[in-house]
Design a protein around this nucleic acid. Structure first.
Length: 490
RNA sequence: GCCCCCAUCGUCUAGGGGACCAGGACGUGGGCCUUUCAAGCCCAAGACCGGAGUUCGAAUCUCCGUGGGGGCACCA
């Protein structure tokens, strides 16, 4: 490891699906580590598996990362001196490095086909090393004559390989466990193990921060690096994220999440379209497997760029807790200014067919700021302000406590009171209606509930006095009138 | 089956030999506030996986179990 060179990290996803919180959290940790060290972050697309390639996933991945606020210094979209950053465009490099290992006796050509491999699988633990001792000249001849082949690593058969992981200390693997694994496939593409190590080295990566799923192949990676005589990066393996219950790897679920839970998803893209704020997601993700101390846990991305460290990463698996995402989301919304919230809400209103006046929206925001968790929630809180006709069902107006007649009287009295108001301001509305409730010998709630229902069509609404003011006397009057008629006709 | 990793409230975690009858956060229950619903504030319940060992002393160190997870491809 070279401690004197500047920190360089990489996030190296494969374009086989969309960005989920597992990948995003790995990207975040890399990003933060680069930031705090004044180093650089590289985005590298590992697309050597042509079978699992999904066409638009790279584009979407970049979009999702950017939306979260995670940026990189070099990558397929921005270029850089170690270009190209798309692995499939570097196969020549990988090939020559694989051949280099063959030349120094650390790897060899293998001519076994899939059928043979399949047939020996039951008898041998791994590859049976059928081609390991083929004479190098003969092997080279067969290769140049065009015979289909792979390149395999000549694994040591004795001793152990020990690798140092930053958060797990030493990891030792017995070499007899290692088979002669493939470095370069017959289809002309390298295998991950080779490609990633070659690219990491060529790109000057100093710290490899990646998921735990790579831990079991770390000996292979170290062996490849050592075979080339390169210096090893500092390894840091993050734990996996598990399902909300704490059992099973999260990403196995792959699609949505809990059946009953359509607000939550492990995909960044879904979270975005549900109306979560990127800062809330960042705050939530960073705490899955990392903590600063026992005091602080509300962080913005900018805060994290100043306090993050690798040493405090927790090696044990973390279960995804969507309740906590909602909590952070709420916190972030409440920290925002009204105009910020308005700006975030607007697209969701638009999407549901509401085109709010900017000034009006700004007045509405304070009424719902404490009541929404996602921005999308604002739609159900506000739609009655913007729809001409609201749906009323007469049965809602009566219950155990009040009869139809009582409710009618209330609505008529309220209507009269409101019509006589000199100023249609919530302060006036409040004082007059409180007076009215007193006069009628009613609790304020008893008086207000039918009104709420009449003007919003809902049992719950934003605070009523402000709501009446913003709705305006004309709409309020006509809606109460309509409710009265409805009740009279039962 | 083989290899590797992990283990504190339901969940995320603090703690790293005495400061711990274990602290915080989410969630849950209760209360206050209150025009509904929230938000906010207050209170409560709730954990060191088990067993040996080391030590005057173990949540903390060691070993063995057990449990959970990850990986064993011409996938990444």
């Amino acid at each position: 490891m070279n401690t004197s060179s500047p920190t360089r990290v990489r996030f190296a996803p494969s374009p086989t699906g969309y960005l989920h919180i597992g990948g995003a959290r790995t990207a975040l940790y890399n990003y933060l580590f680069a930031k705090i060290n004044g180093g650089s972050m590289v985005l590298r697309i590992e697309d050597t598996d042509r079978n699992r390639y999904i066409k638009d996933s790279e584009k979407q991945l970049i979009k999702d990362l950017k939306w979260l606020g995670i940026s990189w210094d070099e990558g397929p979209d921005v270029g850089g001196i170690y270009s190209p950053y798309t692995q499939s465009e570097r196969t020549k490099l990988h090939r020559s490095h694989a051949e280099q290992l063959v030349n120094i006796g650390k790897a060899y050509y293998c001519f076994c086909d899939k059928a043979r491999l399949q047939s020996i699988r039951s008898k041998h633990k791994g590859y049976d090393e059928h081609c390991r001792e083929i004479d190098t000249d003969i092997a080279l001849e067969r290769v140049t004559s065009g015979e289909e082949h792979t390149i395999r690593f000549r694994s040591p058969k004795q001793g152990t390989t020990t690798v140092d992981d930053l958060i797990r200390k030493n990891i030792t693997v017995k070499n007899e466990q290692l088979e002669d694994f493939v470095l370069f496939k017959a289809d002309g593409f390298p295998v991950y193990h080779l490609a990633a190590m070659v690219d990491d080295h060529l790109m000057g990566i100093t710290h490899v921060i990646r998921g735990e799923e790579w831990l079991s192949s770390i000996a292979k990676h170290a062996l490849i690096i050592r075979a080339f005589g390169w210096s090893e990066p500092i390894w840091c393996h993050l734990s996996v994220l598990t399902q909300p219950g704490g059992k099973g790897k999260m990403s196995k679920r792959d699609t949505k999440t809990d059946e009953q839970d359509d607000n939550h998803s492990i995909f960044i893209h879904d979270l975005r379209s549900k109306g979560y704020h990127p800062e809330a997601i960042i705050n939530w993700m960073v705490l899955m497997g990392w903590s600063l101390d026992d005091k602080q846990e509300n962080f913005k991305l900018a805060d994290l760029e100043a306090v993050f460290n690798l040493e405090r990463i927790n090696p044990s698996p973390a279960a995804v807790n969507f309740g906590k995402l909602d909590h952070f989301q709420g916190k972030h919304i409440r920290q925002m200014s009204d105009s910020e919230v308005a700006a975030n809400i607007q697209p969701f209103l638009l999407k549901s067919g509401i085109t709010p006046d900017k000034e009006m929206l700004l007045k509405l925001v304070p009424l719902i700021k404490n009541r929404i968790t996602t921005f999308e929630d604002s739609v159900e809180w506000l739609s009655f302000f913007f729809t001409k006709e609201i749906m009323l069902s007469p049965s809602e107006f009566t219950n155990k406590k009040s009869t139809k007649e009582e409710t009618l009287v209330i609505l008529q009295e309220v209507k009269l009171t409101l019509e006589q108001l000199p100023k249609y301001k919530h302060e006036n509305i409040e004082s007059e209606l409180r007076l009215l409730a007193d006069k009628m010998n009613l609790k304020l709630g008893q008086l207000l509930n039918p009104v709420r229902l009449a003007i919003s069509g809902q049992k719950v609404s934003p605070p009523l006095f402000e709501t009446l003011e913003l709705l305006g006397d004309y709409l309020v009057n006509s809606r109460i009138e309509k409710a009265i008629k409805l009740l009279e006709n039962i």
